[in-house]
Amino acid sequence: MTLALITPAGRGSHAGNRATATRWAGLLRELGCRVRVIGPEAAPAGCRFDGKSPDLVMALHAWRSHGAILACRQAFPGCPLVVVLTGTDVYRFQHSHPAAFLESLEAANALVGLHDGLDEDLPSRFLPRLHVVHQSALPLPPGAPRPSRRQLDVLVVGHLREEKDPLRAALAVRDLPEDSRLRVVQLGGAHDETWAQAAREEMAANPRYRWLGDLPRWRVRRWMARARLMVISSRMEGGANVVSEACVAGLPVLASDIPGNRGLLGADYAGYFPVADTAALGDLLRRAEAEPAFVEGLRRQVAARAPWFTPEAEREALARVLTACGLHA
């Protein structure tokens, strides 16, 4: 079976779309597929295998891959087409660019979402085509670092851009008492120089905040082992892989109360705060420092979610998508 996987994030990118495409390519190969990962600009020609149409086209990002999706539908009218929905698709471009968004969905034989709450936000006519694939994560390696006893490190992982509300945790620890051990460590590249400058200025003004920039995955995983908490403050998410990673690592999360987080952590999760609410996040951080039982309760909740996020579960979910398209791995 041949499969063309389209992603708007280029080779070498650390963006979530590229990480998802790379991981899925490996899982689909385990299912027996020949997979080619290409950018939208290379479609439809780049989707061909030995000059022949692919057996399936899978496109990440309904809006950014819109042109490629329509081109593939025209070039390969008998080929099943799967569109994978991202957070900016559903929570931004569905409203700001509805025509392109809806055209991509109409062209698809199947839709894939990355969390369990998308049925609240998509037009009902698309729900019969919707499948959920939870992104997987690997356990931390043996011998990973232990959390510091001197500092209570709070980890923020993700690119510095508007959708992530990346400096919210830093703002929440600005005015803590001098004896507090809380420290925010931020990992991720800046979307542009404006965000980089904002992070540098925050470090200069806030001794409890460190921005370490874009680090390789092995170093991110070491920081996950060292941290006591993770903050995910995003304004919108399509089902962030960093949530999966935190759950598998047993790392308690304080998360913005948005569908993309609730769809992974569950409606009853105890660590939510309202979007962009610095005071509410600060209250949760102070409670985490003062009440070890609160942190332990969050740890139990994320650990209970970990079985959702294994590579085996992700591979099986992808296999179900293939079956829904009339293909059998």
Rank of each mutant, 00 (worst) to 15 (best):
Q74M: 07
R64I: 06
C247P: 11
R287Q: 15
A205R: 15
W195V: 04
C33L: 15
L152D: 04
R228Q: 14
E202T: 13
A71Q: 11
S234H: 02
R34Q: 15
G117P: 03
G10H: 13
R149N: 05
P207E: 02
S53V: 05
A4V: 06
R200T: 05
G266V: 05
I69K: 10
M224H: 01
W223N: 01
A45N: 13
A249V: 00
D50K: 15
G158F: 06
A196I: 09
P77I: 06
E289W: 05
R235D: 04
A313S: 07
G10Q: 13
G113C: 14
W218I: 02
P40Q: 06
I258S: 00
L176S: 09
A45S: 14
F273K: 14
L138S: 10
R18Q: 04
R181C: 06
F294R: 14
A255V: 01
R174V: 12
C72N: 03
M1W: 05
M224I: 02
A313Q: 15
N261V: 06
G297Q: 11
A169E: 08
H97S: 11
A25H: 05
S180H: 02
F101S: 10
A144Y: 13
V82A: 12
E316F: 14
L176Q: 10
R168W: 01
S234A: 10
A25Y: 04
L265F: 09
V248P: 00
A15R: 09
N109Q: 12
C72I: 08
A71G: 03
H159K: 03
R29T: 11
D119C: 04
P166F: 06
P44S: 12
A249I: 01
A4R: 07
N17R: 07
P177I: 14
R287W: 08
T22P: 03
D165K: 06
W223F: 15
K52V: 04
P166K: 09
A225Y: 00
V185T: 14
D257M: 05
D119K: 08
E314G: 05
V295I: 10
L114D: 07
G266M: 11
E193D: 15
L152H: 07
R129G: 01
A144P: 14
L85Q: 11
F273G: 12
H95E: 08
V321T: 03
D179V: 08
S65R: 02
G238N: 07
G326E: 03
P147R: 13
V295M: 03
G326M: 02
A240K: 01
A290R: 15
A204M: 04
P40L: 09
W218Y: 05
V154P: 04
C79V: 15
F309G: 00
A199C: 15
D214H: 15
M230S: 07
E178K: 02
I232A: 09
H134N: 02
F309K: 00
R217C: 00
A108N: 07
P141S: 10
D121T: 07
L264C: 14
K164I: 10
L105N: 09
S148R: 09
P177N: 13
V295Y: 02
G117L: 09
H134W: 02
S65V: 11
L215T: 13
P8R: 03
R181W: 04
Q151M: 15
R221Q: 10
G16L: 10
R262F: 08
G117Y: 14
D277V: 04
G117I: 07
R262W: 06
I38T: 03
W195I: 01
L212S: 05
F126L: 00
P307L: 11
R300Y: 01
T310Q: 03
D55F: 06
F126M: 00
R262C: 06
